[in-house]
């Protein structure tokens, strides 16, 4: 009781403190410094209509590389923590026939939608991370509906690694062509798609990087699910 009261009081104090700090921030006012630059130049500099993905992949691509690395480390960490020599799925009851049939019907569409999200990252809201998470959801659906389903590990782990390498490779090509890491060589040097901004074949390397990230995130999250759903088999 005392503990709880102390916790509530300290949380209230912290909340008040944060609110005091936020009271000085001018929300909704025209106080953008860097943001205005992004909004003004995003189209001719990156070719993306979606300013968020342009910032995330193009202007600050290094942060996204860091995020991908964080996900990779998380997946590797889960794999290392739950490592056993013999692991098997120990689900006891199959999903009902309605669930399995529905899953069979829905999984292709969920995957298609995930691919749609990450391919159209420069045009619509979303990008590689939501698209990859959607694809991982399809695999989670398969895992939950069927007792014996397992992702094809060999292919998945290789795809994950290759996608990560692909991201770095795109950045290194930019380094070779343009002089700095993650330079948008497709847009800046090749001028590919400059005349159709707002269509699918534009956006410089944003669609390519988001396809890579989508594949990576999808396979990674599926791998984490796979690791967590399996249990040790004693023999």
């Amino acid at each position: 009781m005392l503990k709880r009261a102390l916790a509530i009081i300290s949380l209230l104090i912290i909340g008040y403190w944060l609110a005091q700090g936020l009271a000085g921030v001018p929300f909704g006012e025209d106080k953008m410094l860097v943001g205005q630059y992004y909004l003004d130049h995003v189209k001719e500099q990156t070719g993306a209509v979606n300013a968020v993905t342009a910032v995330v992949v193009n202007y600050r691509g290094f942060d996204t590389l860091g995020e991908v690395t964080v996900l990779f480390i998380a997946s590797t960490g889960v794999g290392a923590l739950l490592w056993r020599r013999k692991k098997k799925r120990t689900a006891k009851t199959e999903g009902s026939i309605v669930l399995t049939t529905g899953t069979r019907l829905l999984v292709p569409f969920v995957m298609l939608f995930g691919a749609y999200i990450f391919i159209h990252g420069h045009l619509t809201p979303g990008g590689g991370f939501p698209g990859g998470a959607t694809i991982a959801t399809a695999f989670l659906l398969l895992y939950l509906a069927f007792i014996t389903y397992e992702i094809p590990h060999k292919g998945f782990e290789k795809t994950e690694g290759l996608a990560g390498m692909g991201y770095v490779l795109v950045g290194l090509i930019g380094l070779a062509i343009g002089g700095y890491f993650l330079f948008d060589w497709i847009w800046q040097t090749w001028n590919f798609g400059t005349e159709n901004i707002g269509r699918l074949f534009s956006g410089g390397f944003i669609p390519i990087i988001y396809t890579i990230i989508g594949l990576k995130v999808g396979t990674e999250l599926s791998g984490i699910i796979d690791n967590m759903l399996k249990e040790e088999v004693s023999e």
């Binding site: 999903g95 009902s96 309605v98 669930l99 529905g102 019907l105 829905l106």
Partner: peptide, 10 residues
């Protein structure tokens, strides 16, 4: 229309 009944069933 396709997913709601399945989730309700589950």
């Amino acid at each position: 229309l396709l997913t709601n009944p399945i989730s309700a069933h589950a």
